[in-house]
Design a binder for these strands. Structure first.
Lengths: 198, 198
DNA sequence: GTCTATATCCAGATAGAC
DNA sequence: GTCTATCTGGATATAGAC
């Protein structure tokens, strides 16, 4: 499938998948710059030559990783938009998803949300401008138009709805929170929604 | 002043101040790892030899910078605690301060809040565990004990009170917000407080 | 396509005169 | 204390056999 109009991203072979997996772990555990190609070679069991065959350079690995994760998040959010009708339900579902993802794949969340991509991926826009974040802000904006959410500056509303949860995710990833995030979902959501509801 | 019990931090000479200033700008503009010692030499007009004389190594520059900024923030917050009596007033004052600092010294905020210190300063605890962040959580905890804030999990309350504002700071630093942060203070504070008030 | 061996570069760090 | 000149390691990236 999808053999036509290949969008200049590397195909997925077993080897590339291994490299991307190893890179994700190393990048999030030690940071991009503390991870050398030899490190990735060891962790992925793929040789230097093959790595450079699939990815133009080290940055290419990070770029490929980032793009695939953003795309995956986009699809999740679109799914949420199509299965939930109100801003209330959509935003809650987003937070629920992010909390679950954080527990199941902490490295993914760490890389997506808390890496400084612009320091190692050239010409990269800040994460906040990426499609998934735009989708989150749109959910809030729609909710405001439809009278679910108070009339305030849209970006302030969005920050208020998602800010607390994103903060909890960071605390969890930094080891400050002992309990799994889903345990806090009801409480934080109640706070978040109160902050913008009529 | 403070000549006794010097706390193993480098004294402040004109040269060290220049190095720290240059490093702060370079680290926040390009990132720590994209900044070389020669870069700092050029930007600070202090020679390699002197830099290594004052700071053990490159990491030492970052460490010194980080410690001095954390200490400064601590003092700001203690000042706020002693001049404001309620959690409501204290938390609002903290956000007010952070918003102003972001406008006046964006590099300081960028370095404090959004650098991955643990990737380049060894044995560094996550920022969220640093004294200023603890102070912020304490303000909320006290407010809860005194009945200003609903009885919920303390860390959730703190995340809800400060999460939206921290999010706005990030958006502002990433160039997503055009207007200076203080213009949003009233709105975001209203949201934040509603989220936890009785 | 995959591998090993190797070239090249430039970073961090030091030596030692002044 | 400050400087310039220099060393050294290890990183990214390539060459070229298989």
């Amino acid at each position: 499938m999808n053999t036509t109009t290949e969008t200049k991203r590397a195909r997925t072979t077993p080897a590339t998948a291994q490299v991307l997996g190893a890179a994700l772990n190393l990048f999030t555990e030690q940071g991009y710059f503390n991870t050398s190609i030899p490190d990735i070679v060891k962790a992925s069991s793929v040789s230097t030559g093959s790595i450079y065959h699939y990815f133009r350079d080290k940055e290419g690995i990070a770029r490929s990783l980032y793009n695939s994760l953003v795309e995956r998040m986009e699809q999740h959010f679109s799914e949420i938009e199509s299965t939930h009708a109100t801003a209330h339900d959509r935003c809650r579902a987003v937070i629920d998803l992010l909390f679950q993802l954080t527990e199941q794949e902490p490295a993914v969340m760490r890389f997506m949300l808390f890496s400084r991509h612009r320091e190692f991926i050239l010409d990269q826009k800040p994460v906040c401008s990426s499609r998934p974040f735009v989708q989150m802000r749109e959910m809030v904006a729609v909710g405001m138009k439809q009278g679910e959410i108070r009339e305030i500056t849209p970006i302030v509303a969005a920050s208020s709805v998602f800010g607390g949860s994103l903060r909890l995710i960071q605390l969890r990833l930094d080891g400050i929170l002992d309990a799994p995030l889903p345990e806090y979902l009801d409480e934080i959501w109640q706070c978040s929604w109160r902050s913008v509801a009529l």
